[in-house]
Design a protein around this nucleic acid. Sequence first.
DNA 1: CAGTGGTCTAGACCACAAC
DNA 2: TTGTGGTCTAGACCACTGA
Lengths: 275, 275
Amino acid sequence: MARYEEIAQDLRVLITSGEYPPGAALPLMRDLAEQYGVSDITMRRAYGLLTGEGLIESRGRSGTFVREHPDRLRLTVRTRQMERDELGYYSGPETQGWRPLQLPDGEQTQVVTLLVPADIADTLGVAPDTRLTVRRRLIGDPDVETHRQLADSWLAPWVAEELPLLSGRTGLGGMYDRLEEWGSQPLQWREEISARMPSPEEAAALVMPSTGVPLLRTLRITYFAEAGPERVAEVQDIRMSAAVFALGYPLPRGESARWPVEPATGDYYQDPPEA
Amino acid sequence: MARYEEIAQDLRVLITSGEYPPGAALPLMRDLAEQYGVSDITMRRAYGLLTGEGLIESRGRSGTFVREHPDRLRLTVRTRQMERDELGYYSGPETQGWRPLQLPDGEQTQVVTLLVPADIADTLGVAPDTRLTVRRRLIGDPDVETHRQLADSWLAPWVAEELPLLSGRTGLGGMYDRLEEWGSQPLQWREEISARMPSPEEAAALVMPSTGVPLLRTLRITYFAEAGPERVAEVQDIRMSAAVFALGYPLPRGESARWPVEPATGDYYQDPPEA
DNA sequence: CAGTGGTCTAGACCACAAC
DNA sequence: TTGTGGTCTAGACCACTGA
């Protein structure tokens, strides 16, 4: 084990045992380096390791502290609201005050053409290197800056072709109604939850550290399945800080619904970074 | 922006634009350092940043590569099986071959007394610094070393007192039946999903990198609610690599079930690291 | 203005991978 | 054997925080 790993391990024990409780200040890097008889840089690596694990955080030039575990918002999906609403996010009493926020470019809704993330391409049934139009929104609590979610809506090409829905004043809520009329069958929804590290842009938009805290990601999939094989109409990609949110699902008693379980592909972020 | 961040950004663009596709080898650190006219260490930091984001990985001494996104297993819970089964994990056709694996100490089931993670203490209704007995298992596919889940079962103190269940040959499956008899009401289940970075021990047990890939975490909560306020009997803490697993939930049509939504507390790993 | 973390360099040695 | 990433050091300067 490398020296910096040993030191990190020492600190880990002190932190998880409660010696340094959440919020406590850690010793100065310089002091500890001297104590251990290692160089500045080696000590920094030890601290860096723990930062990457989400155990500690350095606050600018005022010290290094044990990370507090903030309360997490437990969110549940409400299907009925989803059917009416055009906002792609989790709702409930705790999200009453939520509204669209400004994206980095100053808009509330951004419509751009991007490379489709690998797992969404897979779900939509398009080639992995396809570019599609995506509708992006940032939604959250204007008063609590960390309570926000970034939501992308990807429409299947056949939907975009069949229905002139994206334009004008037809919200997504209206779209679901129209789709059901058009397909003469009810839509179904499912969600697939995963996690990965955020891109710098995502971290900035969601006001979360870009290291130590993962992104919790929900793919909300809208599809027809009643007649014949599954036909995916839309995939919403909802991203939020895993330090701030937890997602809840009731488990119905008895046999739960199932769907095809072919392996999904993973993804990593595909947003075009500003070069 | 620091020099190493600029360089990382350059590489990010090359990777997400497909210039360096998944699996491709990145230039040697030494070469790039020379090209950019920076020191070795600065270039290492740039690479380290991208590693922490999960974009690239270095394979020992054979080079640095763009991370492949492996197929993710999409898992669904089957409630019926859960009622019968004593194994705390997600099941379905793709987990047919799964069985208990050996924990680092060589056992299949480890029963130890540990500090309760903050969010589980909260759910169980015990003080944050309580120590409780936990039953730990590692379950997975013996043939695919990354297909594994680490599951801890925490019993509420009142359950441990009321029923002599932990000992002997009474599995958890049996426990649920007995609990329902005892309480003369059906048990209910819900799941709360979150993510955080793994501890080194968790990363080792789950055969995942300890950096760049988050841990996907499910709290499966067993409780009585029919008569009076909610009474939590057990919390299972199921952890898996977010690069390998995604969790799926069907959304029932209409009003979905709800439960109390007080903020949950966050957690970080509390396992006793070997000092 | 002192304290503290952030960045950067030049140079060195090691250990394992792949041939 | 060579290539490659991993680790470590001593020393320096910067920039923001907070008294």
